[in-house]
Simulated assay, not measured.
Amino acid sequence: MRILAIDTSNQTLTVAVCEEKKIIGQYTITVKRNHSLTLMPAITQLVKDVGLTPNGFDRIVVAQGPGSYTGLRIGVTTAKTLAYTLKKELVGISSLKALAANCVMVKGAIIPVFDARRNNVYTGAYEYVDGVLTTVIADRHIAMEEWLEHLKEFDSLYFVGEDVEKFRTQIKAVLPNAEICDISEWQIPNGTALAELGRLAEPEVDIHHFLPNYLKRVEAEENWLKDHTSEVENYVEKI
């Protein structure tokens, strides 16, 4: 099975081409760029460099979220368009799980973290069980203070992600024995790891209704709902 994997869920953009467990090629850029301008050229160049055509894939795998609202829309829209146009399978994978997948040598709970602003995070808990990355706590949007209290039940914790450093002091104050990843290549999304997760997952049945998993409404939408709650309730009653 040949797979094209795409992750634009955060600042890092990564695209990979894999066949079964073999890496054919990968493109990753970590500097801040406009993903809407760089994603398709990156895919086009990578596909050309590995000697394939756009139709040479069996499956498109995309990081579905959570993460940057704009980044997720770009990645998911591109993946959906390619899958529909080329009549290929589409698989969505948690962006947090994809990050946790980097930590293949870690024993215990792996805690991927994305900063969600105002001391909130997108996070979850994962663990390798018999070589398979397993969800221990489902992805969520949560206050970091509350999350750290929740994690006290674990004996072994490994925090990973570029944003973890922002919370280092807070983490160590509550969980002094927690380990914080210091391996730079594990801190960012890896297209190859994403492709492997996608290889093992079931494809989407309905591509048209496949959407990013934001976990939280955008701030503008939340503010609108605060001001229009009665209108929404009246509309629901009418329906």
Rank of each mutant, 00 (worst) to 15 (best):
I93A: 03
V47S: 00
Y69C: 05
Y126Q: 06
A195T: 06
R117C: 06
L4S: 00
P212E: 06
A101C: 11
D139P: 04
G161P: 09
I137P: 14
K88C: 04
V47Q: 00
E185C: 06
S184H: 03
R33G: 00
N213C: 05
L46K: 02
S156E: 15
E153W: 04
Y122W: 12
M144P: 10
V160E: 07
I171N: 01
R118V: 03
V136C: 14
Y235I: 01
G51N: 03
L52P: 04
L194P: 04
K166D: 01
L225W: 10
K216M: 09
S36D: 04
V15W: 07
T169G: 15
E127I: 09
N120E: 11
Y214M: 04
C103Y: 08
K48S: 10
G131C: 15
N34Q: 12
A201D: 03
P66N: 07
A101D: 07
L211F: 10
I111R: 07
T8H: 08
E237F: 14
T38F: 13
E162H: 12
F167D: 01
D163P: 13
Y158A: 03
Q187Y: 00
V232S: 05
V62M: 12
T81F: 13
K22T: 14
F210H: 09
Q64C: 08
E196D: 03
T123L: 10
I43N: 05
R168V: 04
V129Y: 14
K238Q: 03
A178H: 01
H209V: 02
N234V: 01
E231K: 05
T77A: 15
V91A: 01
V232P: 01
T70Q: 09
E202H: 08
L215R: 02
G65T: 10
S230V: 13
A193N: 13
T123S: 15
T14R: 14
I239P: 03
E204F: 07
F57A: 00
P176T: 02
T123Y: 07
F114A: 06
L211N: 13
H228K: 06
N213T: 08
Q64W: 04
L99M: 08
G56Y: 07
A101V: 06
C181M: 02
S95P: 11
Y158C: 03
G191R: 03
A5C: 06
H35I: 08
I60K: 00
E145V: 15
A125Q: 10
E19W: 07
A143K: 13
